[in-house]
Structure formats: structure tokens, C-alpha cells
């Protein structure tokens, strides 16, 4: 049995899809924020791998075909954005101010907390790009002399967390404008959070997609300014 699994081209992909389906099913049944299909999916796959003692590399061998679609899917985020173009043109100033303040809060907040925890420069620059999409974040981290593997891990944890807590944060801070919700998710938790924004609505999804791009580019420009501070 194990040999079939380790040599399969489809095992990892099927396991990921089934795990996500399980997450969707549980979400429908329980309706709690923590019962999040991505989080459940990840935990279920982890469970199966450790239960059957299957290596991550073995799983990744076929699961990578699912990740392969991530670039074309990100390209397609242009479609909801295009459909909301009129709204974007009308509110472009609010959109820009919102994303800029979020990026500054991210970089400034990481600096203050890193100082409070007395982190090394290396770990500080590793955490600086934590809010932006993985592909840009790795580049920024490496450029500044950070540890890329930790950056990737932190970016993914940020994304899952943002996806799980978004609705609670909006309730707590009384954020109800769809544009504001979308930008908040995209700026704080990139594409992984955007999955939640798309679930909330078309405007939220479109704005979240836009925020991935703008926040990512702003961080590329501003992170080198913050890096020498610590």
C-alpha cells in the first residue's frame, strides 16, 4: 500500500482536494470561524502524513501540481478587479491611503516589536516582509539578508491567520465598508486571505486582489528604508 502511495502521481493532489472538501463540509455543519476549510485541509493532510509515516517530499511530489496553478489563478484576480473598475476609480484616493497606512503599520509594527523582543538584525529583516505575498516576500527577505525559510513560514502562517480571524476583526473594529474589508484582508494577509475576501463578496475579493499587488510593491520600496533601523 505504502509503495503505491509513494510512487503515485495523484495521491498528494487527491489527498489535498479531499482534505479541503472535508473542511468545507465541517464549515457548513459547524459555522465557526476556526473551522476554516484551508486550516482544516492543512491539518487533515498533516494528520494523514504523520499517521501513515509519509514524508512531506513524497506528498509534495504530486501536490505540487496543485500549487502549479497558483500563478495563473493570481493572474485571474485581474478579472474581479476589472469588473469593479468603476468603483476603484471613484475611490482611488481612499484605496491608496488605506493600503499605504497598512504597509506602514506592518513595517513600523515589526520594527517596534522586534526592538521590544531585542531580536537580531537577521531575524528582524526576516520578519519585515511578513504581510506580503510569498513570491515577493522571499525576494525582499533575501535582498536584506534574512532567512528565507522562516520568511516563507511566517508569510503562510500570517495568511492562514488572516483568513481565519478576518470576520472577527471586522466585527471588533466596526469595519463594514466592503472596500475597506477587502483592502484590509489583502494588505494584511495577501493571497491566502484573499480566499476569504472572495467568499465575503465580489467587491471584497477585487479589492483584496488589488491590495496584494500594491502592498507587495510598496513593501519592496519601503522595506530597505526600515531595514537599517535595527
Amino acid at each position: 500500500m505504502k509503495q503505491i502511495v509513494t510512487e503515485s502521481f495523484f495521491f498528494g493532489a487527491v489527498l489535498s482536494l479531499l482534505a479541503y472538501e472535508l473542511g468545507l463540509l465541517l464549515k457548513k455543519k459547524m459555522k465557526m470561524a476556526i473551522v476554516n476549510p484551508i486550516l482544516i485541509g492543512i491539518l487533515a493532510v498533516m494528520g494523514v502524513l504523520s499517521l501513515w509515516d509519509i514524508k512531506y517530499e513524497t506528498y509534495q511530489e504530486s501536490a505540487k501540481y496543485i500549487s502549479y496553478l497558483l500563478t495563473p489563478a493570481t493572474v485571474c484576480l485581474a478579472v474581479p478587479l476589472y469588473e469593479q473598475m468603476k468603483l476603484l476609480k471613484k475611490h482611488w484616493k481612499a484605496v491608496m491611503v488605506g493600503i499605504c497606512s497598512g504597509v506602514l503599520a506592518s513595517l513600523g509594527g515589526v520594527f517596534l516589536l522586534a526592538k521590544a523582543f531585542d531580536l537580531s538584525h537577521e531575524l528582524y529583516v526576516t520578519l519585515l516582509p511578513k504581510s506580503i505575498t510569498t513570491a515577493i516576500g522571499i525576494g525582499v527577505s533575501e535582498e536584506l539578508g534574512g532567512i528565507a525559510t522562516i520568511t516563507v513560514a511566517v508569510i503562510i502562517i500570517t495568511g492562514i491567520l488572516g483568513n481565519v480571524i478576518a470576520e472577527a476583526v471586522f466585527r471588533f473594529f466596526h469595519i463594514s465598508e466592503p472596500i475597506a474589508k477587502g483592502l484590509a484582508i489583502g494588505t494584511s494577509s495577501h493571497a491566502l486571505g484573499t480566499a476569504k475576501a472572495l467568499e465575503l463578496g465580489q467587491v471584497e475579493g477585487a479589492m483584496s486582489g488589488l491590495a496584494i499587488v500594491v502592498a507587495g510593491l510598496l513593501t519592496v520600496i519601503l522595506a530597505p528604508v526600515f531595514a537599517p533601523l535595527l
Binding site: S16, Y20, I38, Y56, Q60, K64, L69, V79, T194
Partner: peptide, 15 residues
């Protein structure tokens, strides 16, 4: 593709 995007993050999360 946009609809199935969440599934694409599972391998990275398992990583």
C-alpha cells in the same frame, strides 16, 4: 481558477 484558489495553498501550508 479563482474559485479553487484556496486549495492551492494546502501544499504550502503542509510544508
Amino acid at each position: 481558477l479563482v474559485e479553487i484558489m484556496p486549495v492551492m495553498f494546502i501544499p504550502a501550508g503542509v510544508g
